[in-house]
Deep mutational scan, measured.
Amino acid sequence: MTEYKLVVVGAGGVGKSALTIQLIQNHFVDEYDPTIEDSYRKQVVIDGETCLLDILDTAGQEEYSAMRDQYMRTGEGFLCVFAINNTKSFEDIHHYREQIKRVKDSEDVPMVLVGNKCDLPSRTVDTKQAQDLARSYGIPFIETSAKTRQGVDDAFYTLVREIRKHKEKMSKDGKKKKKKSKTKCVIM
């Protein structure tokens, strides 16, 4: 069974824990209790493949930012979460993405942009803004509501699919490099 290491990042209060708990335990946590770091595991079937999701729910508070490099190193894919009623959390996505790329030393890291709290009427981040940002990053965008469960499975499952595509691409690139290195030079 394939294991996928997913990391949920975003500013404090955007609903990272609520999304994760909704996926794992099928219930909505409405009281806000700032996370330092929590880890969850769940076995699911995605596109006919049974897999184990190892999900790291991270601290959004700035005082825990020193811990970010460590979990970013171990993560295979990242859910970059903002709240649709919090423009600052949307603007912060850029910083999370840049930090992930720096730590992973790669421009090509599996990510999904997630606009959470889409059940709320007080939207300050337009869907088109988020779609445009995701398009500019070359990553999928999904709106979710941890409260109603809308888009929750889709967000995590899409990230797994992005990781699969990335692994497939990397193995193809690896095979191309191996083929090239088999060419021999004969000096007579």
Rank of each mutant, 00 (worst) to 15 (best):
E63Y: 05
E63S: 07
E63V: 02
E63T: 04
E63L: 02
E63R: 03
E63A: 03
E63W: 01
E63F: 02
Y64S: 11
Y64R: 08
S65M: 03
S65G: 09
S65C: 05
S65F: 03
S65T: 08
A66S: 11
A66V: 12
A66Q: 12
A66N: 10
A66F: 09
M67G: 05
M67A: 08
M67Y: 06
M67V: 07
M67T: 06
R68H: 07
R68E: 03
R68M: 03
R68I: 01
R68G: 06
D69L: 01
D69H: 06
D69I: 00
D69W: 01
D69K: 04
D69P: 03
D69A: 06
Q70H: 14
Q70K: 07
Q70I: 07
Q70M: 10
Q70C: 07
Q70T: 08
Q70E: 13
Y71H: 14
Y71P: 09
M72T: 09
M72Q: 05
M72F: 14
R73W: 05
R73F: 06
R73H: 11
R73L: 07
R73I: 06
R73E: 12
T74P: 07
T74G: 12
T74Y: 07
T74D: 14
T74V: 08
T74N: 12
T74R: 08
T74W: 07
T74A: 12
T74I: 07
G75F: 07
G75Y: 11
G75N: 05
E76I: 15
E76H: 15
E76P: 02
E76G: 12
E76W: 15
G77V: 11
G77R: 01
F78P: 00
F78N: 00
F78R: 00
L79P: 02
L79D: 00
L79Y: 03
L79H: 01
L79F: 07
L79W: 02
C80N: 02
C80M: 13
C80S: 02
C80L: 15
V81I: 13
V81F: 07
V81P: 05
F82A: 14
F82H: 10
F82N: 03
A83G: 14
A83S: 14
A83F: 02
I84H: 15
I84M: 15
I84N: 15
N86M: 01
N86G: 12
N86F: 01
T87V: 08
T87W: 04
K88T: 11
K88D: 13
K88C: 11
K88R: 11
K88L: 10
K88G: 12
S89G: 08
S89R: 02
S89V: 04
F90A: 12
F90Y: 07
F90L: 13
F90G: 05
F90H: 04
E91S: 08
E91G: 03
E91V: 03
E91R: 05
D92V: 06
I93P: 01
I93L: 10
I93W: 04
H95T: 08
H95W: 08
H95V: 04
Y96C: 10
Y96G: 01
Y96T: 04
Y96W: 15
Y96A: 05
R97Q: 08
R97A: 14
R97D: 02
R97C: 15
R97L: 15
R97G: 04
E98V: 01
E98K: 04
E98P: 01
E98H: 02
E98D: 07
E98R: 04
Q99F: 14
Q99E: 14
I100W: 06
I100V: 07
K101M: 14
K101D: 04
K101A: 08
K101R: 11
R102N: 08
V103W: 15
V103A: 14
V103K: 12
K104N: 15
K104A: 14
K104R: 14
K104I: 10
K104F: 11
K104H: 14
K104W: 09
D105I: 05
D105H: 05
D105G: 15
D105N: 12
S106T: 11
S106G: 13
E107Y: 14
E107C: 14
D108W: 04
D108C: 08
D108H: 09
D108P: 05
D108F: 09
V109K: 03
V109A: 05
V109I: 10
V109P: 04
V109D: 01
V109Y: 08
P110Y: 01
P110S: 03
P110N: 03
M111W: 06
M111I: 11
M111Q: 00
M111P: 00
M111F: 11
V112W: 01
V112K: 00
V112P: 00
V112H: 00
L113C: 06
L113M: 06
L113R: 01
L113K: 00
L113W: 09
V114M: 10
V114W: 01
V114I: 13
V114G: 01
G115P: 04
G115K: 01
G115Y: 07
G115F: 14
G115L: 09
N116R: 00
N116P: 00
N116V: 15
N116H: 15
N116Y: 00
N116L: 15
N116T: 15
N116M: 15
K117Y: 14
K117T: 13
K117E: 13
K117D: 13
K117N: 14
K117V: 15
K117S: 14
K117I: 15
C118K: 05
C118L: 07
C118G: 11
C118I: 10
C118A: 10
C118T: 08
C118R: 05
C118F: 07
D119K: 03
D119I: 02
D119L: 05
D119W: 02
L120C: 11
L120A: 11
L120F: 13
L120W: 10
L120K: 12
L120R: 06
P121E: 12
P121M: 10
P121A: 13
P121D: 14
P121N: 13
P121H: 10
P121L: 09
S122I: 10
S122C: 08
S122F: 07
S122Y: 07
R123I: 07
R123V: 10
R123P: 09
T124W: 06
T124H: 10
T124Q: 12
T124S: 12
V125M: 10
V125K: 10
V125H: 09
V125Y: 10
V125S: 11
V125P: 09
V125Q: 11
V125L: 09
D126K: 06
D126E: 08
D126N: 09
